[in-house]
Each structure stands twice: as C-alpha cells, then as structure tokens.
C-alpha cells in the first residue's frame, strides 16, 4: 500500500455508497492505520446523488478533502461522468456496468466495468450491490484482508442484522471473483 490512498465512492442515495466507504474506514482503523470517511450529499437521500471520500493512511491525515482520488467506485452514470476526470494517473475506476452501457476511456487510468446489479440479483438481493463493488475493489486494490473486512462487517451490522453477515460476505466474494476472472481473460 502507498502511504495514503484516496478513494471516492459515488452513486444514488440508497445504493449503499456511504456504508461501503465506512467499511473501508473501519477496516483502516482496525488495522491500526488512520481512516477518514467524509460524506457529501444534499438534503435529499434516497434517489439523490451521494458520494463519500475515504482516506486510508499510514501517517496522520492532513487535508480531509481531495481533488483527485487514486481510486473511484462509480455506482451510476452521473457519478462516473462527474468524477472520472478526477482520478490520478495510474489509478483505477470500477464502475457499475449494469447501469452504464457506454464504454469509458480515461487516459492513464484503468477502467473496469463490474455488473454489480446483475451479480447481486444472482445472489438474490439487489441490496448488496455495494458489497459486490466492495469485493471487486478489495480484490483489485489488495488493500485489506478478508479477515479484517469480516470483523468490520459483523461490527457494522450489529446484533440486529447479524443474520445479514453471511449474504454480505457472499456478495463480497462474488465481487472478488469477478475481478479474479477478469485477470484471467486479460492474461
């Protein structure tokens, strides 16, 4: 891992964008790194636009805001268009190609479509698209081990939603799987 990784996660309100970001910040904290999560949304929630910024850093975090991120996870078309030019050279974009049909090219940035809606529907729940995207991100970035993420998931979901852990873990694994297979195709 670099000294610091900036990640932007963007989509519609209700797609689980904020939670996906929080899990990364919790994971950083539990690995004794510095984690920062900052939300950005209007007064509207479900259906409106929402994005969050996550910083995972070995050193204390200075600016909580950044113009360009290393990585962008775009859950819908408006988010992809809004933020695709704000990814650093050598970084990557994962976007939801269940909702975006166009092929996107950004110079110096690897762009990978992940059909998170389709994968989630195959698992039987559209609600876990954020976990599918998170899984794809974890596989692509190698930022955290599964053991850390599973611990964080149990904490975030709490006792009341403990029964949801298994489905979320499955969704993360499905996201990872998609990226692994992608790697094989390219090879």
């Amino acid at each position: 891992m670099n000294d610091a990784v900036n990640i932007r996660i963007a989509g519609f309100g209700g797609q689980g964008v904020m939670m996906a970001g929080q899990i990364l910040a919790y994971a950083a904290t539990s690995e004794d790194l510095n984690g920062l999560w900052s939300p950005s949304y209007g007064p509207e929630t479900r259906g409106g636009t929402a994005n969050c910024a996550v910083i995972v850093s070995k050193k204390p975090i200075n600016s909580p805001v950044f113009l360009k991120s290393h990585h962008l996870l775009a859950f819908n078309y408006p988010s992809l268009i809004k933020f695709m030019d704000r990814v650093k050279q050598g970084g990557f974009i994962l976007y939801n190609n269940s909702l975006v049909s166009e092929t996107v090219l950004v110079e110096g940035v690897e762009v990978i479509g992940v059909p998170i809606n389709d994968i989630a529907l195959e698992l039987g729940s559209i609600q876990v698209i954020n976990m599918v995207m998170l899984g794809a991100y974890l596989e692509k970035s190698k930022i955290f081990e599964d053991s850390t993420i599973h611990k964080v998931l149990a904490y975030v979901l709490g006792e009341r939603k403990a029964h949801m852990v298994e489905l979320n873990v499955k969704a993360i694994e499905a996201g990872r799987d998609f990226i692994r297979k992608q790697g094989l195709i390219h090879a």
Binding site: A25, T29, L36, S38, I61
Partner: peptide, 9 residues
C-alpha cells in the same frame, strides 16, 4: 460541519 459529519480513527 465537516468535522461534525466526517469519521476518523
């Protein structure tokens, strides 16, 4: 408001 709304370790 940013300090109020964001999360940190």
């Amino acid at each position: 408001g940013l300090l109020g709304q964001m999360m940190e370790s």
